[in-house]
Design a protein around this nucleic acid. Structure first.
Lengths: 220, 220
DNA sequence: TTCTTGTCACCTAGGTGTTAATAT
DNA sequence: ATATTAACACCTAGGTGACAAGAA
């Protein structure tokens, strides 16, 4: 079985409507997709991978008037989705289970001609991440006719691919929870979103940036 | 067969008497040990690893008077040396051959109780790096009695383990050639050791640091 | 209008030799 | 004397959203 790591953070994003940036060069996901794995044969070899499936056949746009996503037509054509194989693959079951499996090298792009092996997505379309475990049979073993892989879907990880954030609350939650965005936090180091980030161990040591408009202070 | 990468740089250090820093937390080697591999079976699995053997049974100290290393007694007891397995192991021959194999995760320590898996060395002792390729036989194959590994020694990579640099010329060559030490270069960005570093692609964009004593300017 | 792109200041994360203090 | 340690300024390398300019 598989357990999503940082589930409470994913849920918090999901309630607002998660957005993930896609860029030409490739952008990491935040939150990072991470899982704990259980019940594997410790001595057998497994490949571990992710892919992304369209949630529906629609194209969306963000209505700032209603602060919500609205359907904007039929989906653009979906190419067959790429698969991101975890770089530690293949490895023994014991190896996968002894630590959190993190897909922090995975990047999302909107470049249809990408040749960096990144995941290609259409902006303004909705996707859901999937997780796959593939059993690597020894050459001596006959696996024809037996199910040698398993797929896990995570609905709480669904997101809209965007080139720029649409929902301002998503932006603020990213800033509040992603350490690399610490430079955009406008709060005191000692009084900093502790309740919202209780699941992260928040070291908010940034000084406020005066250039921000004060009206954008955190209100989630 | 195996070819040492950056051999000209290694030779340059070797002529001065290479020194490598060892610390409690672990220190990377510079130059980094990197090789190109040839002639492997592309479809077979191999493990690739390094270890370090004492060059002799002596302890040294640096004589500043003669600017050279002199014997300071019998070697301290050598523990059985640890082996650093390249993190990409195991992998197919094709994988190893298609790019430079770099041991940039390898760290040297003088902490006899190290539990980070670093290579433990005695300071003021001389060592030589070795490179090993181990053939991983399929379970069906009988390899008893056959040589299933090969070892390569690199005399031009021998070095003295130290906790602080002794030979000032080594310090200067490290500063001149290691990008992470760029902050200690005291030269113009446009006129910067190009002849010494011709094998590195020197981007020497650092401003001079006034606090250095000018007498230490590069004279290799 | 709506969406995308490139540049930027500001971070995280970690690899350098220096230096002063400490150990042996 | 000689060798080691720990804190430090200064780098490399790369992940953030903001912003202005450009494209559709």
């Amino acid at each position: 079985s598989v357990q999503l790591e940082m589930k409470s953070l994913w849920d918090e994003f999901d309630e607002l409507g998660t957005e993930m940036i896609v860029t030409k060069a490739g952008r990491r996901m935040f939150p990072t997709f991470q899982v704990r794995m259980f019940g594997l044969d410790p001595l057998a070899d497994f490949m571990v991978m992710m892919d992304f499936v369209p949630v529906d056949d629609k194209r969306y746009r963000y209505s700032f008037h209603s602060s919500s996503w609205v359907v904007a037509g039929k989906a653009d054509p979906h190419m067959p989705g790429r698969i991101h194989v975890h770089p530690d693959s293949p490895a023994k079951g014991a190896q996968w289970m002894k630590q959190i499996v993190s897909f922090d090298k995975l990047k999302l792009t909107n470049n249809l001609l990408d040749d960096n092996g990144h995941i290609i997505l259409n902006s303004m379309h909705k996707y859901q991440p999937r997780f796959h475990v593939v059993y690597v049979a020894p050459k001596t073993e006959d696996v024809s006719g037996t199910e040698n892989f398993r797929t896990y879907g995570f609905t709480e990880c669904k997101f809209m691919a965007v080139t720029a954030y649409q929902n301002h609350r998503i932006t603020q939650l990213k800033i509040a929870s992603n350490p690399f965005a610490k430079g955009f936090r406008d709060c005191d180091p000692n009084d900093c979103m502790v309740e919202v980030l209780s699941h992260i161990n928040p070291t908010c040591g940034s000084r406020a940036r005066a250039q921000h408009r004060p009206s954008s202070s955190l209100q989630l």
